[in-house]
Amino acid sequence: MNVSVNFSGLRLAKWYQFALRFFFGGSICVLAGMIAEKYGPGVGGLFLAFPAIFPASATLLENQQKEKKEKVGLHGTIRGRKVAGVDAAGAAMGSIGLMVFAAIVWQLLPGRAPWRVLLSATVIWFAVSVAIWRTRSLLVHRLKRKTQRAL
C-alpha cells in the first residue's frame, strides 16, 4: 500500500480541532510535570506516553468521516468508527516505536547532547513505526492473496 500526501485533509480540519489538541497536549505536559514533582520522576515519566490527544483525534476523525458521508446523503456513523479504528491500529504500531524512543532516550541522554539524543530518538521512532506498518501491510496483502487463491 502506497503512502500519499493529501493537503485537502488540512482544509477539512477546523481551527478548534488544533486548539483542542494544543490544549490537551499542553495540559498533559503540565500534569506530567506536577505528578513528577509530587511523586517523583518514576511515576511522572509514565505520563509522557499518556493518550492525551488520542480521544480528541479519534472523535474528530469519526465526526469528519460522518460529515463527509452525510454530505452525499449516506449515513456515516459506522464508516466513521471504522476509520477511527484503522487510525487506532496505526497508533498501536506507533506505540511500539514509542517504547523504542523511550529506551533510547533513557540509555543515551545522560552522556550526550540532549538535542542530538531527542532528534535521533524521534527519527528512530519514525523508522521503527514505519517498518512495523510496512511489515503488517505486506503480511495482510499476502494473506488476502492466499485466501483469494484458495477460493
Binding site: 497536549g25 498533559i28 487506532a88 491500529a89 496505526g90 497508533a91 498501536a92 524512543f101 530518538a121 513505526s129
Partner: peptide
C-alpha cells in the same frame, strides 16, 4: 495513525 503515537508530548 502512526502519528497518533508520536512522541510529541514527550
Amino acid at each position: 495513525g502512526l502519528f497518533g503515537a508520536a512522541p510529541s508530548v514527550a
